[in-house]
């Protein structure tokens, strides 16, 4: 099909942008850009460079751990904690990492505390399904189904070192590495320690997503127990609120009294029903004025419809040009 040379202009434009003469920067704003070398693969037989942007972590609301953390941008999609351990231990000052928080890691059924962002918009903060008043411990988590996470391109992570000094060394080493364009191989010696990507990863996922029913059952049981306890707790609290005035002497009106207020939607349905009954009591063509008004309305509708059609035809003409038989 020779006429298939279809490209949208929109998408072509990205290629056409002329490039000003430039060279790779080592410093961007307050970030240091570390080049990482990625080994070639048969499918892509070429060594490539990936740039990792790194700086000291500076969230809007610092925690006591903040001084020993570094903030990393443009995390490679296949990064794992092992990768970062290896990078810092073997190439950047030999410092040790306590943990790595990836921005988009899913834990259990929700997301773990988000990495704080400069703009804050990416933080996927959300309420936990079960807020277990006393502990932060999540219970009844469903089994994990992926053997290895991958991260979205251009994402961020926070690396927590064992102490503040290590973080400082790491940052200094990173700056030096960037300046000297030190050769840092990504993933050497790591890949053997962690689950493989590719077919094997999907195969493993396929296995993991069918957990043992017994494990699943116990997880669900735990969850339901916690939920029941929480519900009971809440009911108790509500009852208390209902019966005892608070410090200002008010009694809170709550759900679940003796009769219990109806469900909201039930009440609404009732209202609807009532309105309908009201309506059907007087037919809408009973009075002369009703008929007349209806007729007028209809006439107006016709005119409106006609004008609408004209407008549509006008638009059609604009879009397709003149009407001519093919």
């Amino acid at each position: 099909m020779r006429s298939l040379q279809i490209r949208t202009r929109q998408y072509q434009s990205s290629r056409m942008v002329p490039m000003p003469k430039s060279k790779v920067a080592t410093q961007v704003q307050d970030f240091t850009a570390i080049p990482l070398r990625r080994p070639a693969l048969p499918a892509h037989p070429k060594e490539t460079t990936h740039y990792l942007y790194i700086r000291a972590n500076a969230p809007k609301v610092p925690t006591e751990d903040t001084p020993r953390e570094l903030f990393i941008v443009n995390v490679p999609i296949d990064a794992t904690e092992h990768h970062f351990r290896s990078v810092f231990a073997d190439h950047l000052g030999g410092v040790r990492i306590e943990s790595v928080d990836f921005e988009d890691t899913w834990v259990g059924k929700g997301i773990k505390a988000p990495v704080v962002h400069a703009d804050g918009s990416r933080g996927k903060k959300r309420k936990r399904g079960v807020e277990d008043g006393k502990t932060d411990q999540e219970v009844g988590v469903l089994p994990e189904t992926w053997g290895r996470e991958v991260h979205r391109s251009g994402g961020t992570a926070v690396v927590k070192f064992i102490d503040q000094a290590s973080a400082a060394i790491a940052l200094r080493e990173a700056r030096r590495a960037a300046k000297n364009s030190k050769e840092i191989m990504w993933g050497t010696g790591v890949e053997s320690k962690i689950p493989a990507l590719g077919y094997a990863r999907y195969k493993a996922h396929h296995k993991l997503r069918y957990p043992d029913p017994a494990i699943l059952q116990s997880s669900v049981d735990t969850f339901m127990e916690a939920f029941a306890a929480q519900e009971a707790d809440r009911t108790k609290q509500l009852t208390r609120q209902r019966s005892e005035p608070d410090e200002e002497g008010f009694v809170t009106v709550t759900r679940g009294g003796r009769t219990g207020p109806a469900r909201e939607e039930e009440a609404r349905a009732q209202e609807e029903e009532f309105k309908k009954r009201e309506k059907s009591r007087v037919k809408d063509d009973f009075y002369r004025f009703q008929v007349r008004e209806k007729r007028k309305e209809h006439a107006q509708d016709l005119v409106k419809g006609f004008e609408e059609d004209r407008r549509r035809l006008e638009e059609m003409r604009k879009r397709r040009g003149k009407l001519r038989p093919q």
């Binding site: 892509h44 070429k46 296949d78 590719g198």
Partner: peptide
């Protein structure tokens, strides 16, 4: 400082992600 998409790097990443599938 400009940010230019790292096409080579991304293709290499994809190759690593797919491994033997690609």
């Amino acid at each position: 400082v400009d940010a230019k998409i790292n096409k080579d790097g991304i293709l290499a990443e994809i190759a690593h992600l797919g491994r033997d599938l690609i």
